[in-house]
Deep mutational scan, measured.
Amino acid sequence: SEEKKKAKERLERLGASSELARELLDRANGNAEKAERLLRKLL
């Protein structure tokens, strides 16, 4: 979806690899905010 694509791009801008961004979104069930929080914990 367009929303998921935007979320993935945002995670990548924050420093996630394409693969990591995809994994985070999967774990967050597509929830962009939750995926971002997970990423911030990792960085």
Rank of each mutant, 00 (worst) to 15 (best):
S1L: 12
S1V: 11
S1K: 10
S1G: 11
S1F: 12
E2C: 13
E2G: 09
E2L: 13
E2F: 11
E3V: 10
E3T: 10
K4W: 15
K4I: 14
K4M: 15
K4F: 15
K5R: 13
K5I: 12
K5W: 09
K5V: 11
K6I: 10
K6A: 12
K6Y: 10
K6H: 10
A7M: 08
A7S: 07
K8Q: 15
K8S: 11
K8T: 15
E9C: 13
E9P: 04
E9H: 08
E9N: 08
E9A: 12
R10K: 08
R10V: 06
L11T: 00
L11K: 01
L11M: 04
E12G: 03
E12A: 06
E12F: 05
E12I: 15
E12K: 09
E12S: 05
R13Q: 11
R13I: 07
R13K: 11
R13D: 06
R13A: 13
R13H: 08
R13S: 11
L14S: 02
L14F: 05
L14M: 11
G15N: 02
G15D: 01
G15L: 05
G15R: 03
G15A: 03
G15Q: 01
A16Y: 02
A16H: 02
S17K: 03
S17W: 07
S17T: 10
S18K: 10
S18T: 08
S18R: 09
S18Y: 05
E19F: 06
E19W: 10
E19Y: 05
L20N: 01
L20S: 02
L20V: 06
L20I: 05
A21W: 09
A21S: 04
A21Q: 02
A21C: 03
A21L: 05
A21N: 01
A21I: 07
R22N: 12
R22M: 14
R22T: 13
R22K: 12
R22L: 15
R22D: 15
R22H: 08
E23T: 12
L24G: 00
L24Q: 01
L24I: 06
L24D: 00
L24Y: 03
L24H: 00
L25F: 05
L25G: 01
L25K: 00
L25E: 01
D26H: 11
D26E: 14
D26F: 13
D26P: 00
D26K: 14
D26L: 14
D26C: 14
R27N: 05
R27K: 10
R27W: 14
R27M: 13
A28N: 04
A28T: 14
N29R: 10
N29G: 14
N29D: 10
G30Y: 09
G30P: 00
G30R: 01
G30K: 02
N31G: 02
A32V: 15
A32G: 07
A32I: 15
A32F: 15
A32C: 07
A32P: 09
A32Q: 07
A32L: 15
E33A: 14
E33Q: 13
K34A: 14
K34E: 15
A35D: 00
A35C: 05
A35Q: 00
A35P: 00
E36Q: 06
R37P: 00
L38I: 08
L38M: 14
L38D: 05
L38Y: 07
L38F: 06
L38C: 10
L39E: 00
L39H: 00
L39Q: 00
L39F: 08
R40K: 08
R40W: 13
R40P: 00
K41V: 09
K41N: 11
K41E: 12
K41H: 12
K41F: 14
K41Y: 13
L42F: 09
L43N: 04
